[in-house]
Deep mutational scan, measured.
Amino acid sequence: SASLEDVKTAVLGLLVILQTKLYTLPASHATRVYEMLVSHIQLHYKHSYTLPIASSIRLQAFDFLLLLRADSLHRLGLPNKDGVVRFSPYCVCDYMEPERGSEKKTSGPLSPPTGPPGPAPAGPAVRLGSVPYSLLFRVLLQCLKQESDWKVLKLVLGRLPESLRYKVLIFTSPCSVDQLCSALCSMLSGPKTLERLRGAPEGF
């Protein structure tokens, strides 16, 4: 439990870093931090981490990651405290083949985003970082199938509809809506759902 406290501190630090690096160059920093966060949550489900502190780590990670939004130009952003989304000039939600690297070039400044813009690109060529939603999407499927803490599952179920409104997140990387529907149906009809959940409301 003591070591998990250190892990929790590290994860919180990564969330803060991602919130900053999403809007700064090099964009590969945001890509790497995002991948680290998603990989860490995957390990929770792989090794069945069920301690309360592990659940709190997942809760905080999902609470942040499910706020990711994308505009029509595929640029990622996060809402501010007033709910207004600021889109990044440097990070996009497109999935890119590994051989192309985590970044790609664009020939010049991008068109203005639909929300308040981030800082304008400084040079004639900007390297865009790929932060594909499919990585998070796979972890969300694991959550629906394996999550043991009701608070975490409730958060994910509550945030998913709003995330799905931003269709560009889903359609720019390999996210299977069929698998999502299947996971939701299995969660509702499967007898093991109630068996594994802690803290579920009576009558769920």
Rank of each mutant, 00 (worst) to 15 (best):
S1P: 05
A2L: 08
A2W: 07
A2M: 11
A2F: 08
L4T: 07
L4Q: 13
D6Q: 01
D6L: 01
A10Q: 00
A10R: 00
L12Q: 15
L14S: 09
L15T: 14
L15C: 13
L15Y: 04
V16I: 09
I17Y: 01
L18Y: 05
K21Q: 06
L22C: 05
Y23T: 05
T24N: 11
L25Y: 14
L25R: 13
L25A: 15
P26R: 02
P26V: 02
A27Q: 08
A27V: 12
S28Q: 13
H29P: 02
T31M: 15
R32Q: 06
V33Y: 00
V33P: 04
Y34M: 07
Y34E: 02
E35A: 12
M36W: 02
M36P: 00
L37V: 10
L37Y: 00
S39V: 07
S39Q: 13
S39H: 14
H40S: 02
Q42T: 10
Q42M: 10
Q42D: 13
L43Y: 08
Y45M: 00
Y45V: 00
Y45N: 00
S48L: 08
S48Q: 15
Y49L: 03
T50N: 13
L51R: 02
L51F: 04
P52G: 07
I53M: 08
I53G: 02
I53P: 05
I53L: 09
S55K: 12
S56K: 12
S56M: 13
S56E: 15
L68T: 05
L68D: 02
A70N: 04
D71Y: 00
N80V: 08
D82S: 10
G83S: 07
V84S: 15
V84H: 10
V84A: 10
R86K: 10
C93F: 03
C93E: 03
M96C: 10
G101V: 13
E103H: 14
K104P: 14
K104A: 15
K105N: 15
T106A: 14
T106M: 12
G108K: 14
P109I: 15
P109D: 13
L110S: 15
S111D: 13
P112K: 15
P113T: 11
T114L: 11
G115E: 12
P117M: 13
G118Q: 15
G118D: 15
A125K: 15
A125H: 09
L128C: 11
S130V: 11
V131C: 15
P132A: 06
P132S: 06
L136M: 10
F137A: 03
R138K: 12
V139F: 01
L141V: 09
L141Y: 05
Q146W: 13
W150D: 00
L155V: 13
L157F: 03
L157V: 02
G158M: 14
R159T: 04
R159E: 03
L160Y: 01
L160R: 00
L160C: 01
P161S: 13
E162I: 13
R165N: 09
Y166W: 09
I170G: 03
T172E: 04
P174H: 08
C175D: 05
D178S: 08
Q179R: 08
L180P: 00
S182M: 08
S182W: 06
C185A: 06
S186A: 14
S186M: 11
M187W: 04
L188Q: 02
L188R: 02
S189Q: 12
S189T: 14
G190K: 09
K192D: 15
L194A: 10
L194H: 09
L194W: 13
R196C: 05
L197F: 14
L197H: 03
R198K: 14
G199C: 11
A200V: 14
